[in-house]
């Protein structure tokens, strides 16, 4: 039952974050690149002031899968690094925590770019 609720919350929180993005796309003239940047920075900011942690507890993947979750990992890593290693940790912490995602993106990105051909639509 708990597990089912996890999925329900992931759906609701994840969907809601996407709706915020959609509202920005539909009603402002922001391009998608700007919205992505905005979401990452927003994730970092909300984590820094301690709000995003509680969203993650409730939403699980619903909060970590959207790009705000990427900001959450970056900020968490930087904060942990700062606590353990001071300034050096503050600089390395973000990328250390997100290394898996970035490395996978480069690796799979390259792999599939080589394998597949673009279509003219």
């Amino acid at each position: 039952m708990d597990m089912l609720m996890n999925f329900v919350w992931a759906f609701i929180i994840g969907g809601a974050i996407c709706v915020v993005g959609q509202l920005l796309l539909s009603f402002t003239r922001l391009t998608s690149a700007r919205i992505l940047v905005l979401f990452v920075v927003l994730g970092v900011f909300l984590t820094a002031i301690g709000i995003y942690e509680s969203i993650v507890e409730l939403g699980g993947a619903g909060a970590t899968v959207p790009l705000t979750g990427f900001g959450y990992s970056l900020a968490n890593g930087a904060i942990e690094g700062a606590m353990e290693n001071g300034i050096i940790g503050a600089i390395t912490g973000g990328l250390t925590a997100t290394a898996a995602g970035i490395a996978a993106a480069i690796f799979f990105g390259y792999l599939f770019a080589i394998i597949f051909k673009p279509h003219s639509k």
């Binding site: 920075v41 970092v44 984590t47 900001g71 900020a75 904060i79 600089i91 973000g94």
Partner: peptide
């Protein structure tokens, strides 16, 4: 070309947050 800015601003803002926490 498209994802670059996300990394740039994400990493910069995380470093700022880390330094503030120091």
């Amino acid at each position: 070309t498209v994802a670059g800015p996300v990394l740039v601003y994400g990493v910069i803002s995380s470093i700022i947050v880390g330094i503030i926490y120091c």
